[in-house]
Design a protein around this nucleic acid. Structure first.
Lengths: 205, 205
DNA sequence: GGTATTTTGTAGCATTCGATCTAAAATCAT
DNA sequence: ATGATTTTAGATCGAATGCTACAAAATACC
């Protein structure tokens, strides 16, 4: 039933992710893509439809391999507070180690694709919601387990954490400085800590 | 001493700001720029040197008219806590009212220009530092005035506020939702509030 | 082997990109 | 008026853009 595909589909999509991730949608050319994917231009259009459709596919692959993998891995331990803490810590470490400052493909897309493409915008918003849902689940789990303050509003704090996360990923591309990024994250993580009982203190004489 | 310029330099640069602000650096063409600026292509190169140099000029104009104007206006009252609160509130309002989701030109540039252009990257980082310095000054002023907790670390909290601000501006482009954005900002603003004296409470019987 | 179907490489499409060239128009100093 | 100098409009440069046409190559079914 026709000639067989000769290229490695996994490697091809991973190559597309690398291109779009590093340079963004507009700045990536179809020829750049084809070369990195190890295929010819005709095969690209035959197999993936075109640049825009390929971007959607690559974004889904990124979400699967990067975001969902991290969520599944960190949430597996059943330690909700540690999961959230480790999530932010891992983002900071990766941002500092990322020599070419690619940042997060979802955040990058939220800024320079979503506003100009309603359809892709909804996809991106959906991925961001998944991250927020991760925060929300673990806040609720932490509250139930008595590891986080009962007063914590999971809905509101998950939004705050998503915003802080996003801010970190943006600032890391302009100022990849550990002290800065950790200072951004710290107060958000402190929200999750149980309030310390104020020690009885002697009155001043 | 030569023919006089016929175009309005202020309107020209403002037009350039509009273009770069709405579409970003790469997606804006020199022809788009010339048309919006009300000049011909030759005049653009003669007066501003080229696309990249014009971008730097436009970015400086944006920083002056948007960021520094806001800082000066809000800081004038001598009410540091209110200045910070109003800053974030104003950003949220503008983001929600911004129908074409242009966001903040500085944040946009931090994400899709700074990583690929070291020189412009430093410029952008400098502008971000100005915003952080605004936060820092007002935290210190608020502490001195006894309106904010003495335990507040101005350096760290100013970084946190910058991150939260950046996150808001990015999320607003993908999900312009008031509840979301206000939830992102709230905990950061709560850091500035004086701790409430816990009321004496009757023991349960 | 023959045929239908799919993939692949090559070439090329029209368009747009940033940038430049040329020459006419406009100004000031002399 | 003349000359020097600058700005302007318009055409155009080579390169790159997303995409497609076309035919050769490779497979499965008969």
């Amino acid at each position: 039933m026709g000639r067989l595909k000769e290229f490695d589909e996994t490697k091809a999509i991973d190559g597309a992710v690398d291109c779009f991730w590093a340079r963004g949608y507009a700045a990536t050319s179809v020829r750049d893509l084809a070369e990195r994917m190890g295929i010819g231009g005709a095969s690209l259009y035959n197999a993936y439809g075109g640049k825009r459709a390929l971007f959607v596919t690559a974004l889904a692959r990124y979400a699967d391999r990067s975001m969902r993998e991290r969520i599944a891995r960190l949430e597996g331990d059943g330690r909700p507070k540690e999961a959230i803490r480790a999530f932010l810590a891992e983002i900071i470490e990766r941002s500092l180690a990322d020599r070419d400052r690619k940042g997060c493909m979802l955040v990058n897309s939220a800024l320079d694709v979503a506003p100009h493409d309603a359809e892709i915008g909804k996809v991106v918003a959906g991925y961001l919601d998944e991250i927020r849902a991760f925060f929300r689940r673990n806040i609720e789990a932490g509250r139930s387990a008595g590891q986080m303050p009962r007063t914590l509003d999971a809905d509101a704090v998950s939004a705050h954490l998503l915003g802080v996360l996003t801010g970190i990923r943006v600032l890391a591309r302009a100022k990849p400085d550990r002290a800065l990024l950790e200072s951004v994250a710290r107060p958000a993580l402190d929200l999750l800590e149980m309030p310390v009982k104020p020690r009885a203190r002697r009155r001043r004489s």
